[in-house]
Structures are given as structure tokens and as C-alpha cells.
Design a protein around this nucleic acid. Structure first.
Lengths: 207, 207
DNA sequence: TATCGTAGAGAACGAACGTTCTCTCCGCTA
DNA sequence: TAGCGGAGAGAACGTTCGTTCTCTACGATA
């Protein structure tokens, strides 16, 4: 098995297990078993559990933001894109293995004990906030920086609320709050009201 | 040492250690050392670590909501109280040992593995949401249920953002978002705008 | 003073942790 | 075919975990 393949399998196993059960609840041996990679090779790829955790977070960050951006970019009007974030969130919340924000979970567990993990989490949140900033800037918001801050707060609140309640409905409630702050900043898309969106297809092309 | 005193010292130690370092990162022996309660007595009070964690969360829930309610009740006008929540949050975020939401942290760590902990977290979030509902109802909001949902999302987002960034400024940004959704629901207090509040004393009595 | 119940200190238990080491086997070269 | 390097399997290391047990000391009662 090549190094690059082993690394991928290790990160795949780490993502499923760390995200699903928490970092501290999953031992290295369990990752070895799930990945099929020998323990020796595991420690050749990642010198410690902390390194593996950090790598897991950084890869998840890229994938997560990539999936979000892909979904949002499908929205044709720049003014509609900020709210499309919450449509994507709702889809994500509905997935059976959804268990909240991997980064916040890891931060709560290891943020106080591992600077590397804390940095990865901070970087992720900063990237997301930067992405939202670009969206509202393109949508012509009055004060993009302030609006991005507000949306970032609402997004995090939506994720944690959905995780605890176990219901994807938090996305819709967050979406309605986001619609209000967007409207207040002068961003009015084609479906600012939201909420009844789930009754059928969007009125704009989504494909 | 009486049972009731031992229990209090155990919960005090558990709160500082579990909240500060995470639940899994703190062993029972460390709690014994910090509390001065013997291990035997510890297991007489709490039959397992899980029970201690749940008791820690439930006591913290009562205290946390009590402190919040005390601070908010000092606001004379019912219309100003919802935003006062965020003033209290900012004070909390500025405390040196602030490390995010104890309940979300515990949920991320043990929510998948302990039903008792998950229940305690859900109960806390439901209580907070119910408290917010009462506030906006008293303030005469148009749709109190929907508004309470929105505020609950913003509160959770504020806490997690403040925890990750390590700066209390998230409270102000959440406050401004909350002010917008409150205004949209017809709740207009004496200082809805917020934001410049931090430049000096509030214009209403705070004592 | 002799006895008893209880409490604290901390040793001890088995399991699991992160990490390293040993052993064996296989594919390559001379 | 003999020898070598690297890889996988998994035993083993030392530590720490949650939990239980042992031993000693002490205060109350007769």
C-alpha cells in the first residue's frame, strides 16, 4: 500500500470515527482496524494522535467549505446566495450521521489542551466567515463586514441547535433570522421570506 | 464531613475541572484531589463518573440561568430585556475562565455515548429557549415562538463564536443581529441600536 | 477500657490508552 | 539459492483510566 493511499484511508476512518464518537472516545487502534492500515504505517504518516486529529480537521474544512460553495454557487443571483447557505445547512442537518460541527466538538474536547487543534478550528471559522463576507459583498450589502459577522454567528447557532435538538428545522429558523438581517442590510433576494421554501422546488433554478 | 458538604465540594471541583479542561481529560482522581473528598465518599455521592457529569451540568444549568435572569430582570423596561441578554453574555465572555458553552462542549464529547448527558444538554437548551420566549412575549413581540427560536440560535452562535475567537466582541455582533430581528418583530426598546453601548454606561439604569 | 461502626488514605484492579518493538514474511538483487 | 530491506501483524511498554478493596485510625457507646 502506498503512503498516499494509506493516508487517505486513515483520514477516512478518522473522520467517520472522530466525528461520530468524539476524539477522545476513539483510540488509535480503532482507527487502525477501520482503515486496514498497520499501526506502524499509521505512525509513519502521522507522528501522533494530535497530528492525525489536526489533519482530519484540516481536510474536513476543505471538503465542508467546498460542498457549501458548490451548492451556493448554483444559485444564479448573487442576492440569493447568502440565504442558500441555510438551504445547504438544512440538507446537511438531515443526514443521518450529522452530529454538529466537527470543529466546535473538537474545540470543546481538546481546545484547552492542544494548540494545534485550537488553531485548526480558528482557521476554519475564519475561512467560513471570509466566505460569507464574499457572498454579502457580492450581494451588495451596506456593511459587508458587520453583516458577515452576524451571519457567521447565525450559522454557528444553527449548527449547534440542530445538533442538540436532532432536528433539521433549526436551519429554517436560522434562515428566517438571516433573511431579516440581510434585508436590514439592503440585500433582498428573490425569496427572502423563506420558510415555505420547503413545500416545493425553489422558484429559481437550483440545478 | 457531611454528605451535603461533600457533594457541594465535589460539584465545585467538577465544574472548574470539567469546564476548564473537558470531561474526558479530567480523571476522577483529579476531582478527589481538588475537592479534598475521599474516593470512597465520592462514589457514595455519585455512583459513576457519568452521574457526576450529569449533576455538574444540571447544577450549572440552574446557576447559569439564574445569573442571566438576575441580570436581565434589572432592566426596567420589558422591551429592553431581550437585548440585555447579550450584555450579560458579553460580561460572561470577558471572564478569564470562559471556555464556551459547558453544555455544548459536553454534548460534543459525550452526547453520542451518554444519553443522560445528552438529555441534560437538551433540557438546558430547552429551558433557555423557554426563558427567551417569556422575554419576547412580555415585550409584545408579534410572533413570540418564532422570535424565541431566532434569538436562541443567535445566543448559541454568540457563545461558540466567542469561545473560538477568544474575544468577547462576538456578543456585540450577536446583539446587533438580535436587535434587527427584534425590531422586525415589533420589539423596539430604548436602545435597540446597541453597538455604541460599550462606549459608556447604558442610558437606562442598570443597577 | 474494650468494642464497634464508620471514614479516610491510598493501594490495587482490570481495562484501555498512545506509542514502540519484535517477529515473521515477502519481493528484490547477486 | 542466499541475503537483504521493508512492510504488516500484533505483542508489549508504561501510563492512566474508572472503580473497588484493604488497612488503619478514631469517636461513640457500654
Amino acid at each position: 500500500m502506498e503512503d498516499i493511499e494509506a493516508e487517505g484511508r486513515l483520514l477516512d476512518a478518522a473522520e467517520v470515527l472522530f466525528y461520530g464518537h468524539g476524539v477522545q472516545a476513539v483510540g488509535m487502534d480503532r482507527i487502525r482496524a477501520a482503515s486496514g492500515v498497520s499501526l506502524k504505517r499509521l505512525y509513519q504518516c502521522f507522528a501522533s494522535k494530535e497530528e492525525l486529529v489536526e489533519a482530519y480537521l484540516r481536510r474536513r474544512d476543505r471538503r465542508w467549505r467546498g460542498a457549501l460553495a458548490t451548492r451556493v454557487a448554483a444559485e444564479q443571483s448573487a442576492a440569493d446566495r447568502p440565504l442558500a447557505v441555510f438551504d445547504w445547512l438544512e440538507e446537511w442537518f438531515g443526514e443521518p450521521d450529522f452530529r454538529g460541527c466537527a470543529f466546535l466538538n473538537a474545540f470543546g474536547e481538546m481546545g484547552a489542551g492542544s494548540a494545534a487543534v485550537a488553531d485548526a478550528v480558528r482557521d476554519h471559522k475564519a475561512e467560513v466567515r471570509g466566505y460569507l463576507l464574499g457572498l454579502v459583498r457580492d450581494a451588495g450589502a451596506a456593511d459587508p463586514e458587520a453583516l458577515a459577522d452576524q451571519l457567521a454567528v447565525i450559522v454557528d447557532g444553527a449548527i449547534t441547535t440542530a445538533a442538540v435538538t436532532g432536528a433539521p428545522g433549526a436551519a429554517g429558523r436560522a434562515r428566517s433570522a438571516a433573511a431579516v438581517v440581510l434585508a436590514a442590510a439592503g440585500v433582498t433576494g428573490g425569496n427572502t421570506e423563506g420558510r415555505e421554501r420547503s413545500r416545493g422546488k425553489r422558484n429559481r433554478a437550483t440545478g
